[in-house]
Simulated assay, not measured.
Amino acid sequence: MNLTEHYNQLYKTSSETIATGKYVIDSEIKNESDSRFGITLLIRPNDEIKANIQHFINELKKVEPEQYFYPDSDIHITVMSIISCSTEFNLNMISPNEYIELICRSLVDVNKIKIHYKGITASPSAIMIQGFPSDETLNNLRNRLRENFKNSNLQQSIDSRYEISTAHSTIMRFQDKLHDPKKLIETAAKFRDYDFGEFDVKSIELVYNDWYQRKSTTRVLGDFGLR
Rank of each mutant, 00 (worst) to 15 (best):
M1Y: 14
L3V: 08
T4G: 13
E5F: 09
N8K: 12
N8I: 07
S14V: 05
S14D: 04
S15I: 04
T17H: 05
A19W: 05
V24C: 09
I25C: 06
I25S: 07
I25T: 08
S27A: 13
S27Q: 14
E28V: 04
I29H: 04
N31K: 12
N31W: 11
I39M: 00
N46I: 02
D47L: 06
E48I: 03
E48K: 13
I49M: 11
K50M: 05
N52P: 09
N52T: 07
N52Y: 07
I53D: 01
I57C: 09
I57A: 07
E59W: 14
K62H: 09
E64M: 09
Y68I: 07
I75N: 09
M80D: 00
I82F: 00
I83H: 00
S84A: 14
S86I: 04
E88Q: 15
N90D: 15
I94M: 01
S95Q: 12
I100R: 06
L102I: 02
C104K: 15
S106P: 03
N111S: 14
K112F: 13
K114A: 07
K114G: 08
I115M: 05
H116R: 13
H116E: 08
I120W: 00
T121I: 05
A122L: 04
I127M: 14
I129P: 01
G131S: 08
D135F: 10
D135E: 14
E136H: 13
E136D: 15
L138T: 03
N139S: 14
N139R: 10
L141S: 03
R144D: 04
R144Q: 06
N148K: 14
N148Y: 10
F149E: 00
N151W: 07
N153C: 11
L154Q: 02
L154K: 00
Q156D: 03
S157E: 06
S160H: 15
R161P: 02
I164D: 02
T166L: 08
T166C: 10
A167N: 03
A167Q: 03
H168Q: 10
D176L: 03
D176C: 10
K177A: 09
D180P: 08
P181N: 12
K182L: 11
K182T: 05
L184M: 12
I185N: 02
I185G: 02
T187P: 13
A188T: 07
A188F: 06
F196E: 05
G197E: 02
D200P: 04
K202A: 14
E205A: 08
Y212T: 05
Y212C: 04
S216K: 15
T217K: 07
T218H: 08
R219Y: 09
G222I: 01
G225D: 12
